[in-house]
């Protein structure tokens, strides 16, 4: 009886060792993980077309809302690729107290559609699942 109990305890100890393995597939709770599949750090509040230079030219303004968790990191950059020109602009980290960054495209023609790729890069890697790809027609 005693030996059976000891045998069962030994089996339980050996089987108990398995829970110490790290299941990589289930390791996806960090929003900074490139494999993150939840909501993005960035959210587009609005895309507006506004005139400038006394109304002779127009620009598109993308109001991008950044989560507080991202703003606290401070060493991130936002890379925006505009495909019509094409043109790439890098926006550095903003003041953590300011939740919105405004992306500006100074060369838009009214009636034309403009598409953007907005990537988020932190440290040495790009956060793929935080990418946004908005398109908007330039109209007043």
């Amino acid at each position: 009886m005693k030996s059976n109990v000891l045998f069962l305890l030994a089996c339980a100890a050996i089987l108990g060792c398995r829970k110490h393995d790290v299941d990589i597939a289930s390791l996806n709770t960090s929003r900074f993980d490139p494999d993150w599949v939840g909501p993005s750090f960035m959210r587009i509040d609005s895309i507006r077309t506004v005139p400038y230079a006394s109304g002779a030219l127009h620009r598109q303004q993308i109001h991008l809302h950044l989560d507080e968790e991202l703003r606290n990191v401070q060493d991130y950059v936002i890379r925006v690729i505009e495909y019509t020109v094409p043109d790439t602009t890098i926006y550095p980290a903003v003041d953590p107290a300011q939740p919105t960054v405004v992306i500006l495209n100074y060369l838009v023609q009214l009636g034309e559609e403009y598409c953007y790729d907005i990537d988020l890069r932190i440290g040495s890697g790009i956060l793929l699942n935080h990418r946004l790809s908005p398109c908007a027609v330039a109209e007043l």
């Binding site: 110490h20 960090s30 900074f32 993980d33 490139p34 990191v73 890697g125």
Partner: peptide, 21 residues
């Protein structure tokens, strides 16, 4: 592995997290 798990939770560098995983 416990340290790796803790690193995963606190690290904010995607490159480091990729290497970790």
């Amino acid at each position: 592995l416990d340290k790796d798990r803790a690193d995963y939770e606190i690290n904010v560098d995607p490159g480091t997290l990729s290497t970790l995983k």
